[in-house]
Lab assay of single mutants.
Amino acid sequence: MLDDRARMEAAKKEKVEQILAEFQLQEEDLKKVMRRMQKEMDRGLRLETHEEASVKMLPTYVRSTPEGSEVGDFLSLDLGGTNFRVMLVKVGEGEEGQWSVKTKHQMYSIPEDAMTGTAEMLFDYISECISDFLDKHQMKHKKLPLGFTFSFPVRHEDIDKGILLNWTKGFKASGAEGNNVVGLLRDAIKRRGDFEMDVVAMVNDTVATMISCYYEDHQCEVGMIVGTGCNACYMEEMQNVELVEGDEGRMCVNTEWGAFGDSGELDEFLLEYDRLVDESSANPGQQLYEKLIGGKYMGELVRLVLLRLVDENLLFHGEASEQLRTRGAFETRFVSQVESDTGDRKQIYNILSTLGLRPSTTDCDIVRRACESVSTRAAHMCSAGLAGVINRMRESRSEDVMRITVGVDGSVYKLHPSFKERFHASVRRLTPSCEITFIESEEGSGRGAALVSAVACKKACMLGQ
């Protein structure tokens, strides 16, 4: 009897593995994704193909990295998701002549009506938060230079001027797309009239992360975010950046690689679950690469896999709870928690219980395998993109072996128990001629924006502006 049951459990697990095998990517698959990513990057950089390229390769006008001589107080704003952060950054000489960066910050959550109302409502709310922060720190009387981390696709015309191309991540505030974001912020500050600010720089969160990590390690020339969304930036040779005049030196390019796949480059790798996630998203047909990796989508992918296993009578005796059938019910943090389970399955059992399920031991094991399959594919897909960037940098610099540091931020990278190990191992397999160091950014977005502002202020002083 026991043997029969054991055989049935083994057969069930084997069927589960057959279904989950769809998520496995072979090294040849990853090399294919990497080569296609490089081709799209090239198209994004070139003037004649930029418009139709899915990977936009947006110039950021960040050319210099901090040298350690900029000092002063800077205000930093960070808008990239449902939370908005205001930070005071003091850049100065530390002990023994070292450079020191001290920060104080406060988080504000953005109400739904500000995210989806008008641009005026959104930026009025942001300036209200700045006003509140300055009151708390008794700094209303000071006109501070301000660095703005704005983590949406922007076409820069200068370091302090950028046109919002399109909202992502659930934002829909009308009247912002096609307009200068810094102008919208300046107008809102003017409307309030109770404080003055000098907006000197606007950067993407990947750029802010790279600059913040450069402060720790001067070989950091790539910034990457794996959180709600997924994106990367890197220092490109100016001669390859056709959208900006000049051939000397390097400029940081914001790849906006989340949109890779929007022209069909990933079609052969998309599964039924991916198509369902895409169809029910706020932007169907867009940001397809990001939807395979980002935390906004990972939990939902797992939920759809679990429903398939229920329908195949391989999980929960073929019956799903009402909660499990509800879109968004299986949160991405559950994926991390399930994979963090120590082996007694308590954590998995508790999560499934909150979803109205009474799982068996085998159910718990199957749910864990589903989570591992989805998150491992995410790590491997992400590795193909980064390997594409790094191999490109090595080739354009004609280096036999390139040493490089990548600064990384984002909740999936930082909080998932195995993502970074799987990701690092896969990147290294795909970049055999590179020695890569990964560092995690601390308060990256805010500190990085302030350091970019410090560079901009120093330049302005040198130019006598």
Rank of each mutant, 00 (worst) to 15 (best):
S373N: 15
L415E: 03
V86W: 01
D344V: 07
G356F: 07
T228S: 02
Y215S: 15
S441V: 07
S360M: 14
E256Q: 01
W99K: 07
D78A: 01
R345D: 15
K161I: 15
E177N: 01
A450E: 02
A173T: 01
H416L: 12
R85T: 02
D262V: 07
Q347M: 09
E322H: 13
S54V: 12
E120N: 00
E96Q: 11
E236C: 05
N204P: 04
S212P: 12
C213G: 15
D198F: 07
V455T: 12
L134V: 09
G175N: 02
T82F: 02
F419A: 06
N283V: 10
V62H: 05
L304W: 08
R377H: 02
A21I: 10
G68C: 14
C371D: 01
C213R: 06
L164H: 03
E51N: 06
R192D: 05
E290M: 03
M197N: 05
L451M: 06
E272L: 09
D365P: 09
E395N: 07
S373Y: 08
L430V: 06
G178V: 02
G175T: 10
V367M: 07
A379H: 02
E67P: 15
T326A: 11
A21T: 11
L324Q: 05
P145H: 13
D3Q: 12
E128F: 12
P432V: 13
L314S: 11
V335H: 05
C230D: 00
L386C: 13
T362A: 10
E14G: 06
F133T: 04
Q106V: 08
V412Q: 04
V199E: 02
D341K: 13
S353R: 12
V226P: 01
C434R: 05
K414M: 15
M197I: 13
V412L: 08
F171N: 02
D78M: 06
S360V: 11
K140G: 05
S100K: 10
M57V: 02
A208C: 05
C371G: 10
F84L: 04
E279Y: 15
V408Q: 05
M238Y: 01
F150V: 04
V338I: 14
R345I: 06
R333N: 15
E48R: 12
S64P: 15
R345N: 08
L79M: 11
H317S: 15
T60D: 03
S263C: 12
D274K: 01
Y289N: 06
A329Y: 10
G448Y: 02
V338D: 07
S375Y: 05
R392L: 07
D124L: 07
Y349H: 06
K143E: 06
G444M: 01
E322Y: 13
N391Q: 09
S375V: 09
K346Y: 09
H141G: 12
K140Q: 04
Y61P: 05
I126S: 01
S360K: 08
E339Q: 09
Q18N: 09
K143T: 07
L306C: 06
S100G: 11
V305R: 09
W99C: 15
C213N: 15
D205C: 00
R63L: 08
K104D: 14
P111K: 12
